[in-house]
């Protein structure tokens, strides 16, 4: 008989292969773009990193956190301070920002221990608001409302002779690949299974010996780590950051929209959501007013016509296409039927 638990290894290899192919294609296309569209790709990829990391928490573990925008900001400011004030190279500041933000995420998890659902969302709303205020108040460190100016860009290796703008886009795409692969590994791990259990039925999870607190903590820490990495990269390639990029009402809610529209609990759905909801309005921008309008309309259309996310539409279409083209016989079943 087939191992009932084996499903994952093959699926994981396929996922990594598909993600790698997409990465190569996206890089190849990006190198043909002008600076404006390269910027759109960069921002889209960074938001996709945020969306994938957010999906581990919202989609797989079932916690709607509004503090994610603040964690993203924390990563950005840590990177800015370390590189601009302390002269650390970007490649050293990046992992520090990720790990420190991951630790902050774990702290949020501990603070919000025992709350769930709406209470949890409100609690993280508070944390997100406080975080944003701290960026404003500690202006000695952060530059306050005026922003943090003069963040050095990521050092570019000599063997990659592309423009700095193209380099930024390649880095953002690479970070997206790393995030996606790491998240795929996480959700397939024992911790990932524990997170699903927490999302579905916390009492049953406990009854089956799942360490609920550990699962929740790891999902938060994982999610926050990649939000921190996204923030750090954003800071380095923007050279300027300000608190308005890390608000609850802006980034915090936008992330919820990206993940819900893309399709929660799929990892790739949120990538689609990020492309559609950040990059597309930018790319189609005629005037910024219409961009916001387009954004709102897109949200409405998606939620009305694809309440389970665009990912569910795409997989249904793929299934229908496969079902018509080849009625694949299950080889295991044939074998079972052949043996007496």
């Amino acid at each position: 008989m087939m191992d009932p638990l084996a499903s994952s290894r093959h699926g994981f290899i396929r996922t990594v292969a598909a993600a790698s192919a997409m990465l190569v294609a996206a890089c190849a296309v990006s190198l043909q773009l002008n600076d404006y569209y390269l910027y759109v790709v960069t921002i889209g990829a960074i938001f996709a990193v945020l969306a994938v990391s957010f999906d581990v928490l919202l989609g797989y573990t079932g916690y709607l956190s509004l503090a994610h925008g603040a964690l993203y900001g924390l990563g950005a400011y840590i990177c800015a301070v370390l590189t601009a004030r302390h002269g650390l190279p970007f490649w050293a500041a990046l992992p520090v920002a990720g790990l420190a933000t991951g630790a902050a995420g774990a702290l949020v998890a501990l603070l919000s221990f025992r709350t769930r659902g709406l209470y949890f969302a409100v609690l993280t709303l508070g944390i997100g608001l406080v975080g944003h205020q701290l960026f404003l108040v500690f202006d000695q460190v952060t530059g306050g409302v005026g922003g943090f100016v003069g963040i050095p860009g990521p050092e570019q290796p000599a063997w990659l002779p592309v423009s700095p703008v193209a380099y930024a886009a390649l880095l953002a795409l690479a970070l997206l690949w790393v995030t996606f692969v790491a998240a795929s590994l996480f959700v397939r791990s024992k911790l990932g299974a524990a997170c699903l259990a927490v999302r579905e039925d916390i009492t049953l999870a406990r009854a089956l010996g799942i360490r609920v607190a550990a699962a929740r903590l790891s999902a938060f820490a994982f999610s926050a780590t990649f939000a921190g990495l996204a923030g750090a990269l954003f800071a380095a390639i923007s050279s300027f950051i300000a608190p308005e990029s890390f608000t609850v009402l802006g980034t915090g809610f936008q992330l919820v929209a990206l993940v819900v529209v893309g399709g929660m609990g799929t990892l790739w759905g949120p990538v689609v959501g990020a492309i559609l909801l950040t990059a597309l309005p930018e790319a189609l921008r005629v005037a910024s007013t219409y961009s916001l309008l387009a954004y709102g309309v897109l949200l409405l259309v998606c939620v009305i016509f694809a309440p389970k996310g665009i990912a569910s539409l795409i997989s249904a279409a793929v299934r229908r296409f496969r079902g018509k083209s080849k009625p694949a016989p299950d080889p295991a079943r044939l074998r079972r039927e052949a043996t007496p």
Binding site: P4, A193, A194, L196, D201, T203, L204, L208, G209, I210
Partner: peptide, 19 residues
């Protein structure tokens, strides 16, 4: 009866396998 109703049987068993 309690099982993880939103998940497949395989995923249910994968969760039970954790501990």
């Amino acid at each position: 009866t309690r099982a993880f109703l939103g998940l497949t049987v395989r995923e249910n068993l994968r969760i039970a396998a954790v501990s």
